[in-house]
């Protein structure tokens, strides 16, 4: 066996033959797409105003960052670093909204879910709040906060909070009453009940809620930035579209997709899998 064969066997053993096969096969359509893109530019099937050359998409980053003053400029959001500013704005909003929205959603969801009467009453409200999708809130948010960061943050927070709240409520409701009773008879107080019974019991639902709220939230954020924002990736692609700078639009869309894929794949899905897998082994919510 020559070196290549040895290496290939080693890689297969390490990562699993099936997995490699899936990764290899799965990348084919992407490679085909990229090839078609390149060929389109070379052969001029469609004019560049429709499909910009790959080079100009990459170049767009450089152009946008033209007056940027290096790393320090990036982190202080110097106005010359347009591209990174937009990226950081959007992601910063996500971070902030998560920090505020997830704990409050869980807190209210647990409190509401613990009491049958309250959860029955609030469930329809939660359903309705989720039904008015994040986007529909944008005009009202503009009325209240004007066009800008506050509006986009509000939309994101709104989406995240209601989804986390609702999923937590459902999760808590699914925990059998007998578990609460048993901890009560061991001398547990309210706090023990919440931390040792309801939150662990509702954990799968909570994690699902967080993942869903991220998915919907990211979309809502981009849309909100387009309609009522003044910074961020959504805003950037909308403005670029109105100036017919298709290469910037492509850049923005690609970045939006990549950010989501990375967040979902390397963070959210493993988190969900780990929780639900582990919890599924030990506990199946009713």
């Amino acid at each position: 066996m020559n070196a290549i064969q040895t290496l290939s066997v080693a890689i297969q053993k390490r990562f699993g033959r099936q997995r490699i096969r899936k990764i290899a096969l799965g990348s084919i359509p992407f490679l085909v797409l990229l090839t078609l893109w390149r060929m389109n530019t070379v052969n001029e099937w469609l004019p560049p105003v429709y499909i910009p050359p790959m080079a100009s998409v990459a170049e767009a980053i450089v152009i946008l960052q033209d007056e940027c003053t290096g790393l320090a400029g990036i982190f202080s959001m110097h106005q010359g670093c347009q591209f990174t500013n937009h990226v950081l704005s959007s992601m910063g909003r996500v971070g902030l909204a998560l920090i505020i929205g997830v704990p409050t959603g869980i807190a209210f969801g647990v409190l509401a879910g613990m009491n049958r009467r309250i959860s029955n009453t609030l469930e329809p409200i939660g359903v309705f709040a989720n039904a008015i999708s994040g986007i529909a809130w944008v005009p009202l948010a503009i009325v209240w906060f004007g066009i800008g960061a506050m509006t986009t943050l509000f939309i994101l927070l709104n989406t995240i909070f209601w989804l986390v709240f609702f999923n937590t409520l459902l999760g808590v409701r699914g925990v059998p009453r007998a578990l609460e009773n048993s901890v009560l008879t061991l001398g547990g107080n309210r706090w023990n009940i919440i931390t040792q019974v309801y939150i662990p019991g509702a954990l799968p639902s909570i994690v699902t809620g967080v993942r869903m709220s991220m998915g919907f939230g990211w979309r809502a954020l981009i849309a909100a930035e387009m309609i009522g924002g003044s910074s961020g990736l959504g805003f950037m692609i909308f403005v670029s579209a109105s100036e017919y700078k298709i290469e910037e639009v492509f850049l923005g869309v690609l970045v939006i997709a990549v950010i989501w894929m990375i967040t979902d794949r390397s963070f959210l899905v493993p988190l969900e899998k780990w929780t639900i897998q582990r919890w599924g082994l030990v506990w199946r919510p009713s």
Binding site: P176, A178, L179, N181, Q196, V197, V282, W283
Partner: peptide, 9 residues
């Protein structure tokens, strides 16, 4: 309790 009610996790 009849349903034992031990915490599954």
């Amino acid at each position: 309790f009849q349903e034992h009610a031990i915490l599954p996790w």
